[in-house]
Design a protein around this nucleic acid. Structure first.
Lengths: 234, 234
DNA sequence: CCAAAAGTGTTTTAGCTACACCCATGA
DNA sequence: TCATGGGTGTAGCTAAAACACTTTTGG
């Protein structure tokens, strides 16, 4: 065995991509999850990389196929590569339920390393589009997700940590809020991401001081209190 | 073509690992780079993942093989997966110069996605150990690296950004400094990482206020000035 | 007029910056 | 005693937190 051969045996795990797609509704941070046909198996939307595709492009494609949105915020936040991250029983069930063609079984039975991307989308802009293998694709409250296969729960947690670790660097609101919104709604979003309460008055000042909000007009809610301003991002 | 087959063609890039190994000497942040046998090609120490190895374990092994150190700080900071990140001419030169066995050519000619890890080591603890394919393995000043192959320069920059983005979260000093050191030396390290000057007096207060430094004794330098304290990490 | 939520002002605290000052050391 | 670098004190600024106060709205 020469010097090169001693360095490695020709082996490599294969690569997949999993997307944690964040949305926001009411008071809750939402995550998109799908359920595979004829199973009770829930998973993050994911996919594979094409031969002529950068990994970022692959993530954008996967996201776009599922949500119809393009040009959204997408960030790679980690790689998940434990040997046993894929539960073989789950994989077997899937292969059976989804009627995998023989030609693809070899592929899917490999060890996979998965690249995690998270994305921020406006739920109102999204047209959910489940593919042929999933019987549902839905928004779930991040505090109340179904049991996800493999290490997908861990992937969601890592995505959330990455997002909240620098909330103010990501243009979180710009990507998750509708065109116009009240300060209260924006605060609800931040609280949902952080999983903690913020003080109203200081939050307001903080946001305004950052200078990327524009005050639009008053929003009369029909409620017995002062009408809040509507804001949009500059 | 059934629903499954329409989702993907059985293709995946392969996976490699590249390590940005940081050290510190004098006033400079150092990075380990190797030069391949009979070439002028410089690269980051890297390697591949074994079948029964978690990716973190693979990174630890690669690091340990090159530096002899175990149990060091190691952090995954990103994945590099552009289609054209590997320069084919460079790869051809390497295959030729290193006398690749036929059996391994197929493997190495694949597209690779590389997982970036950075590591912080005490240069005094390191015993450099070049492998059979590299004729040198040396510390280089990060401001004065040789030209690195492929996208390795970009990988180094990403590692440095990741490190400096939260300097205070990583126990940077603990991993890069020797057992005992002066405040001035610690400041030099921080300045080298940030690439910027810090004010002496405020740096001192900041470090002491963090509470993880312990004052050991005076260090008499033989110079015509007050002897500085020696510190160590608790 | 009242309750509820929105918006603003004020006080205090903490951390950082800048800079003055003193101290220890060897030549 | 001087130059040099080390160590500490302090005033000023800014950002954040806590909380009081005013405003607007519909009932």
């Amino acid at each position: 065995m020469n010097a090169v051969a001693s360095l490695f045996s020709p082996y490599s795990p294969l690569v997949s991509i999993d997307c944690v797609i964040f949305g926001f509704q009411g008071h809750s941070l939402k995550v998109l999850a799908l359920k595979f046909n004829d199973t009770n198996i829930f998973a993050l939307p994911g996919g594979f990389i094409k031969e002529t595709e950068d990994i970022d492009a692959a993530a954008h494609r996967i996201l776009s196929e599922r949500t119809g949105v393009n040009e959204v915020y997408l960030e790679q936040f980690g790689v998940f590569g434990k040997v046993n991250r894929v539960k073989v029983e789950t994989r077997s069930k899937l292969i059976e339920a989804l009627d995998f063609p023989e030609s693809h079984k070899d592929f899917i039975e490999n060890r996979f390393v998965s690249i995690g991307y998270f994305s921020l989308v406006d739920v109102n802009q999204v047209v959910l589009n489940k593919d042929g293998v999933s019987e549902s694709l839905e928004w779930y409250d991040i505090e109340n997700l179904p049991i996800l296969m493999h290490d997908h729960k861990e992937i969601v947690e890592a995505a959330r940590k990455s997002l909240s670790d620098d909330l103010y660097n990501h243009a979180v609101g710009k990507n998750l809020m509708p065109e116009q919104f009240t300060m209260n709604e924006l605060q609800n979003l931040h609280e949902a991401i952080l999983g903690a309460k913020l003080t109203r008055t200081n939050f307001q000042r903080k946001m305004l001081s950052l200078g990327f909000l524009e005050r639009i007009e008053k929003k009369f809610t029909g409620k017995a209190h002062k009408a809040p301003f509507l804001y949009s991002f500059r």
